[in-house]
């Protein structure tokens, strides 16, 4: 049988779905073996996805187009889930807490499922139109999506923070990291994401300046990424206002991610009547 990248990438969806379910089971029963299984499933899915992305890259050369698989909605969704898993795995390794997985892997799984099964998303490999023929495409997409993926994970932390409450002990909620730790993790991930979103906006500006001679033209997509940026700037500075730490930042990290999703989909699908970028 001939293995295609689409095939590998749709399998990945099921691995991430499985991983999300196993992390959930781990959270409920807290059996070490289940936890290891969850991590192994995630890593396996990640490897298959990596292979899928590389294979797609190769396929684009075979078609004579020859470009990195980062050029349309389908490919960027795949990349989003890839980075989300990467950021999560690093965090799991650093914090040694697997319960976080129950809140992070669903984002990757949803992105994969949407990319693979939505009729709105074309999964064929397309050639690059002149505006996209730039080395900045790679830098721009990679940095933006590092930001988006970090924000997805930060949103997971925000949700954990809010449902955790002040509960102690061995219950379901008690298994989550403490509020202090969650607050710190949330802040770190938001700064990390904010850094990459900033670099993403800047690389986008450099690119636009090279292609059209304007580094900022208040295009809906640009403007929404700026709105997202303001929301996370609020979250970063909220710590310096008395009484704003914790809960409010958790809400902001959720609102911020909603804004990320809107920047990504909403602008393409809802505001398409305006001069948005060519539909991805």
């Amino acid at each position: 049988m001939h293995i295609t990248s689409s095939y590998l990438l749709s399998i990945t969806t099921f691995f991430y779905l499985g991983a999300a379910a196993i992390y959930l089971i781990y959270w409920i029963f807290r059996l070490d073996k289940v936890g290891i299984l969850a991590t192994v499933t995630t890593i396996a899915g990640f490897c298959i996805e990596t292979a899928g992305i590389l294979l797609r890259w190769k396929e684009s050369y075979e078609l004579g187009y020859g470009h990195a698989p980062l050029s349309n909605l389908y490919e960027s969704l795949i990349f989003f889930s890839w980075v989300t898993i990467l950021v999560y795995l690093v965090l799991e390794f650093k914090t040694k807490n697997k319960v976080i997985g129950a809140f992070a892997t669903p984002f990757a799984c949803l992105a994969m499922a949407y990319a693979s099964f939505s009729p709105n998303v074309q999964d064929s490999i397309q050639p690059l139109i002149p505006a996209l023929q730039s080395n900045w495409l790679l830098a721009h997409v990679i940095t933006c999506f590092l930001g988006y993926a970090s924000f997805a994970v930060a949103c997971g932390f925000g949700i954990m923070y809010l449902i955790r409450g002040n509960s102690k002990g061995d219950g379901l909620l008690g298994a989550l990291p403490s509020r202090k730790v969650l607050d710190e993790l949330m802040h770190q991930t938001i700064i990390f994401g904010f850094l990459w979103l900033t670099v993403g906006i800047i690389t986008g500006a450099v690119w636009a300046n090279q292609a059209w001679g304007t580094y900022w033209s208040w295009d809906p997509k640009e403007t929404w990424s700026l709105i997202t940026w303001f929301i996370y700037a609020t979250a970063l500075h909220a710590r310096f206002v008395r009484g704003w730490a914790g809960k409010k930042i958790a809400y902001l990290s959720i609102i911020g991610f909603i804004s990320v999703v809107f920047t990504y989909f909403g602008v393409n699908f809802l505001l398409s009547g305006l001069h948005s970028y060519g539909s991805s």
């Binding site: 303001f230 609020t234 305006l274």
Partner: peptide
Amino acid sequence: FILLAITSIIGTV
């Protein structure tokens, strides 16, 4: 930050 975020929406709609 919040005012700018909210008012920036106008020009996109």
